[in-house]
């Protein structure tokens, strides 16, 4: 029942002879992806580089990435999940009618060709972008592609990877996992980590007005989140750590200017394949790093009374009464 089958980008560079980009526009959003990892590199196993690789692009519209692709499949908007689910069925040689296939905007010939190319690949890799993961169906769209990649391993080697961006989002995810067991959507109100996306994820908490303060680092929700979430941020005390003036810093009660990570502050960033990279700052900044600000806030909090009253211990929420 799902899971995730993936690899580091060097594996793609060295081995992937078949690449699918789904719901992403790497030519404009990840401009070095083709040249560094997926298409242009030659390797021991793919000595002819681009000529040894096939690239398929699946998207709802033509983007600049089409030019780089060998095959472009234009899926009807909102039909990604259906298309991937059809592919899962076709891979297993289940009967799907022409009409059913055509609902997705693609023909049987195109899908048969895709499936046979996928099975014939020596090393296939699927990258998916926000065109898949943030449109209707969201996590299930991602799950669909990850499941297809896992199931393809009955035939040949196949992996999948999300095309993540926006600063060090992967790093946050990795560290939350080792400290709490969960990547995001975590509540500590009972004194231990609990996870439930939809209940504790940031947008949902803000839209429902479930929090009475907000502390924001390395993000600009004021520019990206739905209006009800932004309205709540305006209502409550919001504190922002950011090198720049942002939509969020404008609505915040407190904005602490910090040094830009990687430019003026050191640290570690995690690449989309979860490989850690050291950040070596080139410039000096008069501002403190995010880390230093958080550490000093922590020290100040430590001087206050402990959040748990003496002698009390919260209960876990479990199946047991």
């Amino acid at each position: 029942m799902g899971g995730k089958v993936t690899c580091t980008l060097g594996e793609v560079k060295q081995r992937a002879d078949f690449i699918i980009y789904w719901g992403g526009n790497p030519a404009e959003c990840h401009p070095r992806h083709f040249s560094k990892y997926t298409l242009m590199q030659k390797s021991k196993f793919l000595p002819k580089g681009r000529k040894d690789r096939t690239m398929v692009l699946v998207d709802i519209r033509e983007t600049k990435s089409v030019k780089a692709s060998d095959i472009f499949l234009q899926v009807r908007p909102g039909k990604d999940f259906e298309l991937i689910t059809i592919l899962r069925a076709l891979v297993k040689e289940q009967q799907v009618t022409d009409e059913q296939i055509e609902e997705t905007g693609l023909s049987r010939e195109a899908l048969n060709d895709l499936v046979s190319r996928m099975k014939a690949a020596k090393f296939g890799c699927m990258f998916f972008g926000m065109g898949l993961s943030m449109t209707r169906g969201k996590h299930m769209n991602s799950a669909a592609l990850l499941t297809l990649a896992a199931e393809m391993n009955a035939f040949t080697k196949f992996v999948a990877m999300p095309m993540r961006g926006h600063g060090n989002v992967t790093g946050a995810d990795v560290i939350m996992r080792w400290q709490t067991g969960f990547p995001f959507g975590i509540s500590f109100n009972r004194g231990y980590p609990r996870y439930n996306p939809g209940e504790f994820s940031t947008i949902d908490v803000l839209v429902r007005g479930d929090c009475d303060a907000a502390f924001i680092i390395g993000a600009d929700p004021g520019g990206t989140m739905p209006q009800p979430a932004i309205n709540h941020l305006k209502r409550i005390p919001t504190i922002v750590l950011d090198p720049h003036i942002t939509h969020t810093s404008k609505l915040a009660r407190v904005h602490i200017t910090t040094a830009a990570q990687g430019i003026a502050a050191p640290g570690t960033a995690y690449r989309m394949d979860e490989i850690p990279m050291p950040l070596k700052p080139a410039l000096k900044s008069p501002y403190p790093s995010d880390e230093e600000v958080v550490r000093r806030i922590n020290e100040a909090i430590a001087k206050k009374p402990f959040w748990l009253p003496e002698g009390s211990m919260p209960q876990m929420v479990t199946e047991q009464v």
Binding site: M1, G3, K4, T8, G10, E11, A154, V159
Partner: peptide, 14 residues
């Protein structure tokens, strides 16, 4: 994974 039909994670490192 094939024997159990449960979740499967795989990570190949270059």
């Amino acid at each position: 994974y094939k024997l159990t039909g449960r979740k499967w994670g795989n990570l190949d490192v270059e």
